[in-house]
Nucleic acid binder design. Structure first.
Lengths: 148, 148
DNA sequence: TTAAGTGCAAATATTTTGCTGTCAC
DNA sequence: GTGACAGCAAAATATTTGCACTTAA
């Protein structure tokens, strides 16, 4: 299952074409923003970035595209411990799922990959007879710089 | 499936007294509802249950009390994979943290305790030099009854 | 007594939806 | 050409806040 971690621009759009999902200018812009993001973005931030390319794109189009991506399991929805606000953050689903670690003081978000997480999910599937489609582990606390 | 440890009614109120946090009738009612809950409740459900005891309690009081409890680390805030709605669910913090497993088809929520989760958190603390105060692992997929 | 808490109403934040016109295929 | 999609405006949902009154300690 695991593929390289690197972002391949255009991969979301390729997925859409393969499945016969219509690609509009607006969707293309949203996909591009998500694919090229260097940090976790919420719906408003995605909208703002999309509007820099096409100012006429509406907020509801962003939400509708996010729903579509969620339904197809192409993005993950995060809370990031609600570091600021009650909304959600989005990121392209990576081949290797990672933990999100949020410093409650400085707000820094760290991503952490470990096989222990994979093992834990396998254990849940086995012990609970459960087929995992999506999982989310978020941790809040103090980073090394803030804990002193 | 392992259930959470037994609820000790009055423990939240005891915590408040010890810390000199004022206990009002309204807070007492909210604490009692949370302590005696048998399933995960959102703010509206808590309000409804509280109002069965004291109909004059306002929604904002519930939210303010939830904030207070969160700040003191006495409750956990959950999304439960947004099985219904965008709001949050709350539960008393247990000594042993557990995983929340949500069936995306039937909506059933299962709780699961395993030492692998504890180990994973220890590993994060060690490898990331991070002091964990709160953590949340939610899993979505299909339960054994729904996967066929 | 008095600082903290409450209800109320209104504001804010976030997400969804109905409808009409437009565009990708 | 046509069905899916977009923009717009409004609604729905979720949470917070300012203020005057009340109450626990």
């Amino acid at each position: 299952m695991p593929l390289p971690e690197t972002q391949i621009p255009g991969r979301l759009q390729a997925y859409f074409s393969e499945r016969g999902i219509r690609i509009t200018q607006q969707r293309r812009a949203v996909l591009r923003v998500i694919e090229t993001a260097t940090k976790h973005l919420d719906a408003s931030q995605i909208l703002r970035k999309v509007q820099r390319v096409d100012a006429s794109v509406d907020r509801s189009t962003v939400y509708r595209t996010l729903q579509l991506l969620k339904r197809h399991g192409l993005i993950d929805e995060l809370d990031l411990m609600h570091i600021r606000g009650e909304g959600h953050y989005y990121e392209r689903k990576m081949n290797r799922e990672h933990i999100h670690i949020a410093c409650l003081r400085c707000g820094k978000i760290t991503e952490f990959v470990t096989s222990t997480y994979d093992k834990l999910k396998q254990q849940v599937e086995k012990d609970c007879h459960f087929k995992i489609l999506v999982s989310r582990l978020e941790v809040g606390g103090y980073c090394s710089a803030c804990r002193q």
